[in-house]
């Protein structure tokens, strides 16, 4: 890993608690296996051999919201699905993040009509919006990288 060489004989690393915590959070961020529509196929493609998102510590997709840290809303959210989505989000343990993948999840996309929620940010707080219809797997990985930067800059909040 290279850490041994850097450490030498000392066997200790100094860092801030924030940095260590955020490093840990980003290196094992488990997304929820939550496919809605077209974007879910590209999400699967990003997970599979060709794009291999597991290079970034995301090989584990958890279908259970209890075990997931990151919700990737991959696809259009219908009015019927909206309460279910919120329900799933509420079940996720803190800290949790949301990526709105694709145009439909970000703003309704081409479907400006009665059935589709105009942006998933009406239901859950979104951290990163990934554009594209559907976004390429590279774009999704780029979105995840952007989220990492955001998480790494997070400060520890005093308990409320």
């Amino acid at each position: 890993m290279g850490v041994e060489q850097k450490l030498g004989e000392m066997g200790a690393v100094t860092t801030t608690l924030e940095q260590a915590m955020n490093w840990g959070r980003t290196r094992a961020m488990w997304p929820m296996l939550f496919g809605l529509a077209c974007c879910a196929i590209e999400m699967m493609a990003a997970q599979s051999a060709h794009y291999d998102m597991s290079r970034f510590g995301m090989e584990l997709m958890r279908p259970s919201p209890r075990q997931a840290d990151l919700m990737i809303v991959a696809g259009r959210v219908s009015r019927k699905m909206a309460p279910v989505l919120r329900h799933l989000f509420d079940q996720m343990a803190e800290p949790k993040w949301v990526i709105a993948m694709g145009d439909c999840a970000s703003c309704g996309g081409v479907f400006n009509n009665y059935a589709v929620v105009q942006g998933v940010d009406e239901i859950v707080p979104v951290d990163i919006y990934v554009s594209g219809c559907p976004p390429r797997p590279e774009a999704l990985i780029g979105g995840v990288m952007a989220l990492y930067e955001k998480v790494e800059a997070e400060k520890i909040k005093a308990a409320a």
């Binding site: 009015r79 400006n112 009665y114 059935a115």
Partner: peptide
């Protein structure tokens, strides 16, 4: 549509629901 939905969307007098 959800069970508690009002109206019948594909009728011509039902608005598209444009935002």
């Amino acid at each position: 549509m959800p069970d508690d939905w009002n109206g019948h969307p594909l009728r011509k007098d039902y608005p598209l629901g444009y935002e």
